[in-house]
Design a protein around this nucleic acid. Structure first.
Lengths: 343, 343
DNA sequence: TTTAGCACTCAAAACATGAGAGTGCTAACA
DNA sequence: TGTTAGCACTCTCATGTTTTGAGTGCTAAA
C-alpha cells in the first residue's frame, strides 16, 4: 500500500496538474510549503509512484503527470466530501413564480452546469415509456388539416399536425376522440399502438363508417418516435481547455456531439447515483482521453433522466462531483414537486 | 469595364480557388484548356485585375486569391441560373404520409442543407406575432398542478405547466377557460396580454370570486416569451474547411453560435428573396471572414422565417444559391399546404 | 533516511538553409 | 500593338541545426 507521504505527494501532484495542465516537477513541488521535503526526496517518491502506475512521464526528462489509474485513485480515495455551495437554487429561482416549463428547467440546468464548470454538459430528458395518457384532443384547423394533442399524466404535451383523410367528417373526428380517450386514458405511452390495434380498431368499425383505411394513419399518428431529448450546455466551453488545442481533436469531439443516438447510449446506461468514467474507462473512442461524469435525476413515477458533464481527464473532480450531486438533487426535487403521483 | 478576357480569367480563378482553397498562379492557369493564353499574358491580366481590386495576393510572390469585391462581382454577374436538382423533394418525402411536424420538417431541412453543402446551416423558425388563438385549454394534473395549452390557427401548440394558486377550484378553472376562449379566440398572440388586461379581467371579477390575485398569474402564463427558435445543421461541418485550421478561429465561431440572440438578429433583417453577405459585408465581427446566405420562407398568413447558410467566403456560390432557392421554395410550398388561410 | 550535486535527456524555441512556386519586367516576336 | 519567352527576384514552407531550460536518475555525503 501507499505510504502517507506518497499519498500526500500524489494528491499534491494531481491537484497541481488539474490546475496548471503542465507536467509537475520535483523542484517546483519541494518549494510548496505543503511538502517539507527536498526535490531529491520527492523525486524518489515520484519514481516509486510511477512504478506503481499512478504517475506517468510525457517523455524521459519531463515532470510527472497523473495516469488514469492515478485519477481513479484520486477520485475514489483522495476527495473529501466537500460540498459545493454556489449554484444552488438555480432551479428554484425558475419555478418560484408558479410557472413550470420542463424544457426550460432542463436547459437552464445544463447551461448553469457548464457555466459553473467550464466543461460541456449534456442532459438527457426523461424516458417517457412509463408516462400514461391523460387526455387526447383533436382540433381541426381547416377542412383538410388538424392537430392532435396528447397530454400525459406528467404534464408533457405531444402534438402533431396531419392532413385529414378524405371523407372524414367533423363528427367522425369527435367520435374518434371519444373512443381514443375512453380506451387510452391511463394507458402508458408504449402500449398505445397495441391498444389501438386491439381495442380501438373494433370500436371504430362499429361506430364509424369507412374507417379501415384511416386506422393505420391513426396508429402512426400516436406512435411516439420514442426519442429521448438531449440538452446541451457550453458546447464551446471545452475549446478553452488546453487539451483541445488541436484541430483534429476538436473535429472528432464535435462530430461525436452530432451523433445524438450514440450520446444517448453513452449516457443512458448509468445507474442510480453519480458515476465517473475516466479516459479509457469510456467505451466510445472519441472520449477515451476525456472524463465523463453522469448522475441521474428523477421525476415522479420512476421516470428518470441523466445529467452528464464531459471534460478533460484533468478535471476538477472535487468541484464537479459535489456540483453534480447538488444539481441532480435540485432537479429531482423540482420535478418531484410537480409530478406528484396522482393521475 | 472589364474586357471579356478579364472576365473569363476572373471566373476561372475564382472557380479554381473555390475548389482548391489554394492561391492560383498564372502557370497553372495557362495549362488549362479553357484559357489559351500563355502564363505571361495571364500574369498581365491578373496584375490589372488586382489593380481593379478583384484579386489579391497573400504575399508578394504568391498566386492570386479573389478579394471580397471579386466574390461580389462573381455572385452578381458571373453565376448563371444553374438549377440545382438534387435535394429536391426532401420535405415532400417527410410529409407525404399525411403527418406533419413543423419542428421535424425544419430540422430535416437544416440537416439536408448542411449535408448537401458541407457548410453550417441555420433555420429561423417563423415569427408568431401574427398567428391567432385557435383554442385554449387547461387540464388539471393533480390538485396543485395543471397544464395550459394554447393552439394557434397555424397549428402551433404552446404549453406551460403551473401550480394552481390556492383556493382555485376546478369550476373556477372551467369558467376561466371559457372566458379566455370567448375573448381570445381569433386574437393575434401579441395582443393577448393587452386583452387579458382589458377584457378578461373584468369578466373574471364578475363571474369568479377572489381572483384579482391570480390575474397577474394568468397574464404571465399566456405571455409568450416571443423567442424565435433556431435550428442548426452541420455545426461541425465548417471544421472541415481549411479556413478553420486555426483553433482561435474555431473558438470565436462556436462562441458566436452559442449567442443565439445575436444570431437571430443577424438573420432576421433579411428581406424577401435570397441575400448574400460576403466577408466584411457582415456586421458581426466573428463572421467578417465568412459568407452568409439567407433566404426567407413563408407559411400562411404572412408569417415567415429565414434559412441561412454560413461558410467561408470561398463558398460554392453557384451550388449554394440554387440549392437555397429550391429548399426555401419547397418549404414555403409544404407550409402553405398546411396553413391554408381558414381559421 | 534524507539531501546535495552533477551528468544526462529531451522538448521547444530560435535560427539557418534550400527548394519551389510565383511574380514583374524586359526584350523579342507575330 | 498585343503576346510570349526568359530571367532575376521574392517569399513561404519544409527541413535541419543549435541553444536553452526544465527535469530526471544516480551517487555520495550528511
Amino acid at each position: 500500500m501507499l505510504t502517507d507521504r506518497q499519498l500526500m505527494i500524489l494528491q499534491v501532484i494531481i491537484d497541481d496538474f488539474i490546475e496548471s495542465a503542465k507536467p509537475v516537477g520535483s523542484r517546483a513541488l519541494s518549494k510548496k510549503d505543503t511538502l517539507p521535503y527536498s526535490a531529491a526526496t520527492i523525486r524518489n517518491e515520484m519514481a516509486d509512484l510511477e512504478e506503481l502506475g499512478f504517475l506517468e512521464k510525457t517523455h524521459t526528462s519531463s515532470g510527472r503527470v497523473p495516469s488514469e489509474k492515478g485519477y481513479r485513485y484520486y477520485v475514489d480515495h483522495l476527495i473529501g466530501p466537500e460540498i459545493y455551495q454556489h449554484g444552488l437554487g438555480i432551479i428554484e429561482r425558475l419555478t418560484n413564480n408558479g410557472i413550470y416549463e420542463f424544457e426550460q428547467i432542463v436547459q437552464t440546468a445544463a447551461e448553469a452546469l457548464s457555466k459553473l464548470t467550464n466543461y460541456t454538459s449534456i442532459i438527457l430528458g426523461p424516458e417517457m415509456f412509463e408516462a400514461t395518457v391523460k387526455q387526447i384532443q383533436v382540433l381541426a384547423l381547416s377542412d383538410q388539416s388538424a392537430v392532435a394533442i396528447l397530454v400525459t399524466n406528467t404534464g408533457h404535451v405531444e402534438h402533431r399536425s396531419f392532413t385529414l383523410p378524405k371523407g372524414v367528417s367533423s363528427s367522425d373526428i369527435e367520435k374518434l376522440v371519444n373512443i381514443l380517450n375512453d380506451r387510452l386514458q391511463g394507458i402508458p405511452l408504449y402500449r398505445i399502438p397495441e391498444v389501438i390495434q386491439n381495442e380501438v380498431a373494433s370500436l371504430m368499425m362499429k361506430y364509424m363508417n369507412g374507417v379501415d383505411s384511416s386506422l393505420n394513419w391513426i396508429r402512426t399518428l400516436f406512435t411516439q418516435e420514442q426519442a429521448v431529448k438531449l440538452y446541451f450546455g457550453g458546447k464551446a466551453n471545452i475549446l478553452m481547455q488546453p487539451e483541445f488545442n488541436d484541430v483534429d481533436r476538436i473535429r472528432s469531439f464535435y462530430s461525436l456531439m452530432e451523433r445524438e443516438d450514440e450520446i444517448v447510449n453513452l449516457l443512458k446506461n448509468s445507474n442510480q447515483g453519480i458515476k465517473v468514467s475516466i479516459g479509457h474507462e469510456n467505451e466510445v473512442e472519441e472520449i477515451k482521453d476525456l472524463s465523463l461524469i453522469t448522475a441521474s435525476y428523477h421525476i415522479g413515477g420512476g421516470q428518470m433522466g441523466t445529467i452528464a458533464l464531459i471534460g478533460p481527464t484533468r478535471m476538477e473532480y472535487k468541484k464537479v462531483l459535489s456540483l453534480m450531486e447538488s444539481i441532480s438533487k435540485e432537479m429531482t426535487g423540482a420535478m418531484g414537486k410537480w409530478y406528484s403521483d396522482k393521475s
